[in-house]
Design a protein around this nucleic acid. Structure first.
Lengths: 94, 94
DNA sequence: GACATCTATCGTAATATTACGATAAGATGC
DNA sequence: GCATCTTATCGTAATATTACGATAGATGTC
């Protein structure tokens, strides 16, 4: 019997919430294909304003699912494999 | 190469959104343990008003994750294994 | 039928989310 | 320095979410 604490529920809920928008799912799928990706590529990929995409990226970053590192004038986004793995594990144990 | 359509993104986003609240995660975990569960048990399990729990159950039901069948004066809730499996599969392919 | 029990829905208030354009902040190139 | 490019943030409006108490509806019991 595996103990499930309330904090685990909250953690899973936060991660799931971050995934709870089609645009963010699409961003994650896009990043999953490549090692990393410039922010501009993501903006071009989605039918949304640049500011809206930036907002979605912020949600994913706050959830810890993605990381952004500055690369010259641009920002290079990539998935955090550990957090993604945590999400997968928690979902799998449902 | 597996094709990922926009509808798949939306589907995953809808399921993830339904999971995006601690109370709903807890409901799902509670239901996962047993074959089914009376609504009242869930209400007792959570520190929320009955109407609020009913609202959360509705969200999960709309997402297709749980089903509710009337059992006399009560309602018996259970997980939909197929939908839960679909969620797990889609998360796993991220 | 009257009554209690269980659940859903209504009404409502507070807060969060989503989207956009405009603008600011940071880096590069001339 | 100045213009340009890229991204984040601000301001804002529309909508959605979350929570509660109150109430309605359905069912079983007496």
């Amino acid at each position: 019997m595996i103990k499930q604490s309330a904090s685990t529920d909250t953690d899973l809920a936060l991660l799931a919430k971050a995934l709870g928008h089609p645009a963010r799912v699409r961003i994650i799928r896009h990043l999953a294909g490549r090692k990393s990706c410039m922010c501009g590529d993501i903006v071009r990929e989605l039918p949304l304003a640049q500011s809206t995409v930036s907002q979605h990226l912020k949600v994913l970053k706050n959830a810890g699912i993605i990381q952004g590192t500055i690369a010259g004038p641009r920002v290079c986004y990539c998935l955090d494999p550990a957090v993604l793995a945590r999400l997968k594990t928690q979902i799998a144990t449902l």
